[in-house]
């Protein structure tokens, strides 16, 4: 298992390099211009000068290699400087966003707290709701509870957030005036009242996201439990005279969790990636909103860095999921 993990980690490096090149080329190939958002009153000669100031005059491979050096060599130095107060990165060129002309990583650090608060909490809430419902739905298949659960999760899954978001705003912010519709990213939690404000401003986006994630997880949990309920070992366990509770909770659930844990682990990078539409609607302005803003602004260094961090997380959590799979299910052997 250990050698397998090490081998995967070593293999991840060339994979990631290849992914970064693929993302870079895709962004290069995509139509778009960082000057598209500038007003039409700015004439073309000025636009051309602005493009050159961004470094767009250079050929693509030079820009790619520059980015590689900045991301893999200079940015870690900046991080070390930040932690230990050293000065390795003094005066070196960091990865700069075209739109804000400032270091990309600084903005990313600024965005992480609100994304974790909202999307992270939504995932936790969804897992806590989805798993018990999924297990019970499977156990009492086609009961009223199961049917209601199926119905609600299908609605949750098939209604897009660009509808549920405004709907919740109209109900809770406009009509009832209970909750704010705009997330305040500079709000600081210092005591109990400010924590309550934080909870109130998180409530709507978390609701929208949790509905969607619950719908999805609940489906997988239910399907996986159903598969296991019909297995021979369950009959054996019952025949042994085990209590129904023990049969379900310690035999069925444990085995059904295997694919579900993988699904959850594979979804962790999505927490970091944020939720584009929900973040935009509630103005949470986390990583997801940053990505879509930069995509529309054709900010190649920004989008490249963000998607690449995302790729690193995907690769790492993929390895974690595979290792977990092997640990949870001893029948699987990788070596």
């Amino acid at each position: 298992m250990l050698t397998y993990t090490i081998r995967r980690l070593v293999l991840a490096v060339p994979t990631l390099l290849f992914i970064s090149l693929a993302i870079f080329l895709l962004l290069e190939l995509a139509p778009g211009d960082p000057m598209a958002n500038q007003p039409l009153t700015i004439p073309e000669e000025v636009r051309q000068k602005m493009r050159e100031a961004l470094g767009l005059g250079q050929p693509w491979y030079i820009r790619y290699v520059k980015w590689l050096i900045q991301f893999f060599w200079i940015e870690p130095q900046v991080m070390v400087d930040h932690w230990f107060g050293t000065a390795f990165a003094e005066g070196k060129q960091r990865v700069l966003s075209w739109q804000t002309r400032s270091p990309v990583m600084d903005i990313v650090y600024q965005r992480i707290p609100q994304t974790l608060w909202v999307v992270g909490v939504a995932y936790v809430v969804a897992i806590l709701i989805a798993l018990p419902i999924g297990i019970y739905s499977a156990y009492r298949q086609y009961s009223a509870f199961d049917n209601a659960g199926t119905f609600i999760s299908m609605i949750g899954f098939s209604i897009p957030p660009f509808f549920t978001g405004p709907l919740l705003i109209v109900i809770f912010a406009v009509q009832l005036e209970w909750l704010p519709s705009v997330y305040n990213t500079v709000h600081e939690v210092v005591d109990w009242p400010s924590f309550k404000i934080q909870l109130a401003q998180m409530a709507l986006p978390v609701m929208v996201l949790a509905l969607q994630i619950t719908a999805q997880l609940n489906r997988f949990m239910r399907a996986s439990t159903l598969d296991n309920l019909n297995q021979d070992y369950v009959r054996t366990a019952r025949a042994k005279g085990l209590k129904e509770r023990t049969v379900v909770l310690s035999h069925v659930v444990r085995n059904s969790m295997i694919p579900v844990v993988t699904v959850i682990a594979l979804n962790v990078p999505n927490i970091f990636g944020g939720a584009i539409i929900t973040e935009v609607i509630f103005k949470v302005n986390g990583i997801g909103q940053l990505l879509i803003t930069w995509l529309f602004a054709n900010d190649i260094p920004g989008v490249l860095t963000l998607t690449f961090i995302f790729a690193i997380l995907i690769v790492i959590f993929n390895i974690i999921a595979d290792v977990l799979y092997g640990l949870l299910d001893p029948r699987i052997r990788y070596d």
Binding site: S181, V280, N285
Partner: peptide, 22 residues
């Protein structure tokens, strides 16, 4: 001054005229 950005024209209209947050 709090100068917030983001969302859509619809959301900002709502935040000023319907919820009064801005």
């Amino acid at each position: 001054v709090t100068f917030k950005g983001g969302g859509s024209a619809e959301d900002s209209g709502r935040a000023v005229m319907e919820t009064g947050e801005f």
